[in-house]
Design a protein around this nucleic acid. Structure first.
Lengths: 208, 208
DNA sequence: TCGCTGACTAAGCGCTTGCTCAGCATGGTG
DNA sequence: CACCATGCTGAGCAAGCGCTTAGTCAGCGA
């Protein structure tokens, strides 16, 4: 199985087309290295070699190793937030929209698991200013999910005692997929998305 | 709030009483450093300083930095497996036992979140032989949860279409707690455990 | 043909890393 | 007392790190 091109996972990646091809290759190499070994265990030589260049070339396109991480993390979070907003704002009642949200959120974390790992598990390595941006995006994602649960409760479609706890559980399930999912997993991302959608609706007390 | 002593979280920590106090202090310092910064971003000087010693003292008690991680990871996984087995083997029907399992699994991952982070998110840094041991323990944990779900289905208490997917979801929810839970979280570990127990039972189609 | 630019490399700098080792203080044993 | 094992430190080594620098070279407008 060839891996999904990063562009498909990051529709919001700024300047994805105008950016020099070499810069894009470095970004892709960084995603794969950070996901596999973690930020601190990845060397600039790893990234440059994987992109077919010398270490110095990295610094023509990016200010630092941390700047690469910051760009990956911000673009990844922005893409996730966009996905969540689109699913939550679509047609149907709260239950239908929640099913779609969980489905797509899960599919994304399974298919884009390399990006997902960097996005969710390398936050501590971000420079402070980049972290602030990313933290705000994460808060927005959680708020979006909470709002949808609240709408479902108001509409009488969900029965939830603690909205925040339920919202945590919903996002938690999806995020953790990027930790354990591998291309050797027996379920396809789409199957998993469908099943997780079902499980979450039950969890929220919806009749299914 | 003073943090829970490691001994409480690791009843199975081998030789916890016979081990020299200095070795124990190093272990505790390593847990905290690895949890906060990750294995690769933690230096042996960090650990030794936090334990009130010089870097060289570390090598009297442990063969290497990686050996410290291996010991933490193995002991942490063994403790988790013991917890899961005890909950699954206790009194009551499958639903009652599952509620107890999720409750305690969640409480552990919230209270022992520092150990939990090392255990769940630093696997890639383990030496190969230590990883093999730990991977076997993780498989046992998953099998234990799967078996309990199957028992519930057989007894007519659960309605689950894919046992493995459901088991993944159950363990996933608990594991991810160690990622996001902080001492500033609004819920106590016990509250969270109770609520997650409820959510999981609904997810498994139990009448609650 | 010319000078210029932008992408790139070879070499390596200053620093930090995991780890080692000779030696020191301490306290139990003959 | 001498003797030694134990637990530890100060100093430091070899390797590897992120990043910089000086310079090469293809492409291009004039």
């Amino acid at each position: 199985m060839t891996s999904t091109p990063i562009a498909d996972l990051w529709p919001t990646l700024p300047g994805a087309d105008t950016r020099p091809e070499a810069a894009y290759r470095l970004l892709q190499a960084a995603v794969e290295s950070f996901a596999e070994r973690g930020f601190h265990a990845t060397t600039t030589r790893d990234i440059a070699t994987a992109a077919g260049m010398s270490p110095a070339a990295l610094y023509i396109h990016y200010q630092s190793k941390a700047a690469l991480l910051a760009e990956i993390s911000q673009a990844g979070h922005a893409a996730t937030l966009a996905l969540v907003r689109a699913a939550a704002a679509g047609d149907g009642g709260p239950a239908e929209r929640m099913r779609r949200l969980v489905d797509q959120f899960t599919v994304w974390h399974a298919r884009a698991r390399t990006v997902g790992r960097v996005v969710n598990y390398e936050l501590h390595a971000l420079p402070e200013d980049a972290y602030a941006v990313v933290a705000a995006l994460r808060l927005d994602i959680e708020r979006e999910v909470s709002a949808l649960i609240e709408a479902g409760v108001t509409a009488g479609e969900f029965q939830v005692s603690e909205v925040r706890t339920a919202a945590r559980a919903v996002t938690s399930l999806g995020i953790d997929v990027s930790r354990w999912y591998t291309e050797r997993s027996s379920e396809s991302p789409e199957e998993l998305g469908r099943r997780y959608g079902e499980l979450v609706l039950r969890m929220l007390g919806a009749r299914v």
